[in-house]
Nucleic acid binder design. Structure first.
Lengths: 108, 108
DNA sequence: ACCGTACTACGACAATGGTCGAAGTACGAC
DNA sequence: GTCGTACTTCGACCATTGTCGTAGTACGGT
């Protein structure tokens, strides 16, 4: 195995201080991603990307997870072959109190 | 004067029930539009589109105002040659309590 | 070792979106 | 009426974005 074999599984996450409101809003502004976030909100201990039923292919799913991760909305950790995603509730509630709750409580 | 001469000044606004959260979030997710919304939040009695200093041309300004209006974030009324825009605070607070405040209080 | 599952990376594509300039409309002032 | 101001509309442009298929990597099972 090459030394760089584990690079792929290491995802970059923004620090709390690096999270920007426009990026968060834009990330939440897509129907597919909002569906993902709503599903993650119900699973307090995280959820595998593939566990959310979505009308898109796997590669598109990965793309949306990346947007959410890079915006600072979710964290991802490897667990076997799964990537468990979790909502960054604490960080978002600290930076933008009420934002996440308002979005999650919104009628859909 | 033709009968349809006043069409241009009549802008369409979505009813409160027609406002969709994804559209609102996407509208707020643009830096220029967020700047507009922040300016409007300070002027309770509305503001002319051109009164907000923006690094874009007039046509782009109009474009952004249209996005905000069609998303249900602002209302516009004609007042002479000016178009006075107002934040739809009541509607947004009713539909998504805490959302607008969270966005406006966000660090920038 | 082999295979299947879970996900990622890359390239391509069409659609969307932000930007502009030019032309046009509405209103007020003169 | 003419002129200037404020804004809109239209078409064009380029960058971004959501989508996909294909190929690839990592891990667990057998």
């Amino acid at each position: 195995m090459s030394p760089s074999a584990a690079v792929q599984t290491a995802h970059s996450h923004p620090e709390q201080a690096e999270i920007r409101i426009e990026q968060v809003l834009q990330a939440l502004g897509d129907p597919v991603r909002l569906q993902i976030v709503r599903a993650l909100a119900l699973a307090t201990d995280g959820l595998a990307c593939g566990a959310v039923p979505l009308p898109v292919t796997n590669s598109t799913r990965t793309h949306h997870m990346r947007i959410l991760r890079e915006a600072g909305v979710v964290t991802m950790r490897a667990e076997g072959t799964r990537r468990i995603s979790t909502l960054r509730r604490a960080d978002l509630d600290t930076l933008y109190p009420g934002l996440l709750d308002a979005v999650l409580d919104a009628p859909h």
